[in-house]
Design a protein around this nucleic acid. Structure first.
Length: 736
DNA sequence: CTAGGGTTAG
């Protein structure tokens, strides 16, 4: 029998095994057994050619062996597997199933269906069997193709396979992956002979649907019925539920329970335990477990890294990160997102730049986090760059990315671009709509925001609590009092959303701005749960605008009862006193503040020039251009005065000489940033400022005048009334 | 000779 001719430059087939090509016995059986050990396409092709020469390929059984090896090898080349399949003279159902399975698990699940249609119209086979359906259903899950899965379910019934527990379990998983929890649960109840996988599937369905309580209830029911012993997968799923719930006590109980039922903690299970401990806030438990683990993989390391980073222990997190040998995108994301979410956007961007020097590719999670960091900094240039990068890499704009882009453009002051992204989005979920409503709102286009909400209704997208926060906020900024009252009263009865603190806050803000302070106060008293700082802060803000001392004092008192070191409350009340010229109260408040050890958070404004973010504090002289900035400021003051500008001293929190007052006001951080912007950029480039605190009324009016006098567009973003941070879910800040 | 359920980052 002839020896297979290996090209001379190829390495030997299996260096370490006894089946080396040299001493291999080329019986038919040997060739087939060789297939099982063969994982790369080149080797398979050699065996393929041998099978053709010996004629063995024309026995469907042997050919199907080759097909299996080609289709199911890790990192399988499905193009080759398809070619093998096409050459098989009489492929049987097994061959179809194998290739359908491979496609379902691969990168192109839709091909599983092309193959399925070939099967249905095949001359000899026609009918799928009990093996075919789980693969197809898996492919439908991967594609989140509800219609396809539903049709498969129908076919399952027609083929009389509706009591096959394997198929039904896969359908439970499918309905859950399409977020049809009711269908998934209903089907589970109908499974005649449930097994442990049925339970695991339905528990996982509730976990995926963010209903961990129900998942845990089901687990308890499973235990109580006592028919099936929970296995490793059950425990992994239940631990995920504990993690989502943040219930450390129950999670610990689950870990104890695992010992009693002798479920051995595998690597996956240990990782789930680690994740549970981290998510429930016990770094100690996590560390203890991590140290005990005999085997750790990138999941384990990333969980620990995530734990340290989320706890704000960035040095330790960075040490873990640096000590990891194989950094996949997940661990980069863990660190970047922690930086971004815990108020270190500069560090997040620095790490993103570091990532770009490696050959690890950013994914959509990376870009969402990075965009959010840009948003926080007002770094529009970098944000634009990331948008271009997404297009260049042909990354699909999913809901998360679309939302982040809209949020970034809107908050960085480019409403036109935000609208462009919004309208270009083929699919829009509730987050995308809500972000756009917030975007219009923060640019003062309240009526447009309301109109968009109505369009959203027409598009049959269900609003959530965030949508309403943004909508009410929009009404507030545009003074649409009646509209807001209507939406607010409709929330529960029509949309089934119980108004929460932030909705009351919006309403108080809205009524307060409109001067309806008593109605605002009524609303606060009618709140079902005890009022919060944010609601009183909204009222206090309104009291400052309308100079209501009595309610202002009350609001300040309430705020300090809940949060004694709330610097904003002191400052706002002090502004009201200053408005009335009651400087003795201003200094009394100042002393009170000092005695209570409360410090005013320093105001900080930033402006992006040529992709670099420059930051300024009040009276800051640290910038290299400092001299130029201050002479520009002097010039600005002169020019403003010539058009009738008068500094507004009620914005100060201490009584000082008039001249010093003016100076103190003119050195506010936002003015420094504007001056710097005027020096370093030219018309028609807009100047975009981001301020960490609420902008003061003096800077607000000054900025408007500067914009007019210097004929420059100035976009100024400041902090919203409730101090909420900027994030995708809470896009509620505003421009003024 | 084939099958279903599980762990990280938003």
């Amino acid at each position: 029998m002839a020896i297979v001719n290996l090209p001379p430059n190829l390495p030997p087939l299996q260096q370490s095994s006894s089946n080396r090509i040299g001493d291999f016995e080329f019986s038919d059986r040997g060739t087939l057994s060789l297939l099982e050990k063969c994982h790369d396409t080149l080797r398979l092709k050699q065996i393929h050619s041998r099978l053709l020469r010996t004629g063995l390929f024309f026995h469907t059984f042997s050919a199907s062996k080759l097909l299996t090896a080609a289709a199911l090898a890790p990192s399988a080349n499905l193009v080759y597997a398809e070619r093998v399949f096409d050459q098989i003279p009489h492929p049987n159902l097994y061959c179809f199933n194998i290739l359908i399975r491979a496609h379902a698990a691969g990168l192109t699940p839709e091909r599983a269906f092309s193959l399925f249609f070939r099967l249905l119209y095949h001359d000899e086979i026609h009918s799928p069997n009990n093996f075919t359906f789980p693969f197809l259903v898996k492919a439908a899950s991967e594609l989140s193709a509800f219609g396809l899965g539903k049709a498969l379910h129908g076919m399952v019934c027609k083929y009389g396979l509706a009591d096959d527990v394997f198929i039904l379990n896969s359908l439970v998983h499918f309905y859950a992956s399409c977020l049809c929890l009711d269908l998934a649960y209903g089907l589970f109840l109908q499974i005649p002979q449930k097994d442990v996988v049925s339970w695991n599937s339905v528990i996982a369905a509730f976990v995926q649907a963010e209903q961990p309580d129900e998942a845990i209830d089901l687990f308890e029911r499973m235990k109580a019925e006592g028919v099936f012993q929970p296995n490793e997968v059950t425990m992994t799923t239940v631990l995920t539920a504990c993690a989502k719930k943040g219930d450390l006590e129950y999670g610990r109980g689950v870990c104890e329970y695992m010992k009693t039922v002798e479920v051995e903690p595998s690597l996956v299970l240990s990782n789930a335990m680690l994740d549970m401990y981290i998510k429930c806030g016990s770094l100690e438990d996590a560390k203890e477990l991590f140290d005990k683990m005999a085997v750790r993989d990138s999941f384990s390391w990333t969980s620990m890294l995530d734990g340290f980073a989320k706890a704000g222990k960035f040095n330790t997190a960075r040490q873990v990160f640096d000590s990891m040998s194989n950094r996949d995108i997940a661990c980069w994301n863990a660190l970047i997102s922690a930086y971004e979410q815990r108020g270190h956007p500069h560090e997040a961007l620095a790490l993103f730049r570091e990532l770009q020097l490696t050959d690890v590719k950013p994914d959509e999670v990376t870009l969402v986090s990075t965009l959010s960091a840009c948003t926080q900094l007002g770094a529009l240039e970098l944000g634009r760059w990331i948008h271009a990068y997404i297009n260049k890499q042909n990354l699909s704009l999913n809901f998360h990315l679309t939302t982040s882009l809209i949020d970034m453009y809107a908050k960085c002051g480019d409403l036109t671009k935000a609208l462009e992204v919004f309208h270009a989005a083929a699919q829009k979920d509730v987050c995308v709509w809500s972000a756009m409503i917030a975007g219009l709102s923060m640019h003062g286009q309240g009526q447009a925001a309301v109109d968009l909400f109505l369009q959203m209704k027409e598009a049959k997208v269900r609003p959530n609590a965030v949508t309403f926060t943004n909508l009410l906020c929009a009404c507030s900024h545009s003074g649409l009092v009646d509209t807001a009252r209507n939406f607010f009263t409709q929330m529960q009865p029509i949309y089934g959303i119980e108004p929460q603190v932030q909705h009351y806050g919006c309403m108080v803000d809205l009524l307060g701005r409109a001067g309806l302070l008593d109605e605002a106060m009524d609303l606060i008293e009618k709140m079902p749960r005890s009022s919060s700082v944010s609601v009183w802060a909204a009222l206090l803000g309104a009291c400052r605008i309308h100079g209501n001392l009595r309610l202002g004092e009350l609001a300040c008192k309430r705020i300090l009862e809940i949060e004694p070191d709330h610097d904003g409350a002191y400052v706002l009340l002090s502004n009201i006193y200053a408005k009335f010229g009651r400087w003795e109260d201003v200094s009394r408040l100042r002393k009170l503040m000092k005695d209570a050890g409360v410090e005013k958070e320093p105001g900080c404004s930033s402006v992006e020039v040529d992709g670099v973010v420059h930051e300024f504090l009040v009276g800051d002289t640290s910038h290299p251009f400092s001299d130029k900035i201050y002479s520009k400021l002097a010039e600005i003051t002169t020019r403003l005065k010539s058009v009738g500008y008068e500094p507004d001293s009620s914005q100060l929190i201490q009584d000082v000489e008039e001249e010093v007052q003016e100076q103190a006001l003119s050195f506010h951080s936002e003015k420094l940033a504007i001056a710097f912007g005027l020096i370093t950029t030219a018309s028609p480039m807009p100047i975009r400022i981001v301020k960490n605190l609420r902008i003061c009324a003096d800077c607000h009016s000054a900025a408007k005048l500067i914009s007019f006098v210097y004929d420059r567009e100035i976009v100024l973003r400041d902090r919203p009334w409730d101090g909420s941070s900027t994030s995708n879910n809470r896009v509620e800040s505003e421009f003024e």
